[in-house]
Design a protein around this nucleic acid. Structure first.
Length: 135
DNA sequence: ATTCTGACA
DNA sequence: TGTCAGGA
């Protein structure tokens, strides 16, 4: 259960997330407006993304590339629960941690992701999914 | 140096 | 979506 906290802990600013996902800041902010992601905020109103946020963004990116629009993605990506979101609350501890571990922890995580091959979690009937495609 | 919101030649 | 302005 402790891993869940680490996973939902807000760590990196948009700049790093951009490199991680190859998405532009514009896109990332746009997806947030459509509630596809709900990154935490610092006292200075800066976005802080968790590993889960990054994963969701990668899923979003994948779907966008396949031509799925926002409406379709909202059906695929489970809506953000209000309860488990409290882990993204920012306190002085995470604030300090963020400054220290940003790249090192990230690389550690990415390596784990590389060997933890996971099957495309997307599971929707093609017919139903096609309803959300742009063309 | 970075990021944020709003707006559109 | 890109990009620029103007502020934090």
């Amino acid at each position: 259960m402790s891993d869940e906290i680490r996973r939902n802990m807000a760590l990196f600013p948009i700049g790093i997330v951009m490199k991680l996902t190859d998405l532009t800041a514009r896109q990332i902010r746009y997806y947030e407006q459509h509630e596809l992601i709900v990154p935490a905020r610092t006292a200075g109103n800066q976005r802080l993304f968790s590993l889960n946020d990054v994963e969701r963004l990668l899923e979003i990116k994948s779907l966008i590339e396949k031509g799925v629009n926002i409406a379709g993605i909202k059906q695929v990506l489970l809506p953000i629960e209000k309860n488990s979101d409290d882990a993204t609350v920012i306190n002085e501890q995470t604030e300090v941690a963020r400054k220290e571990l940003t790249d090192s922890d990230l690389h550690k995580y990415l390596k784990r992701q590389l060997r933890t091959k996971r099957p495309g979690q997307v599971s929707l009937i093609q017919g139903e999914l096609s309803r959300f495609y742009n063309k």
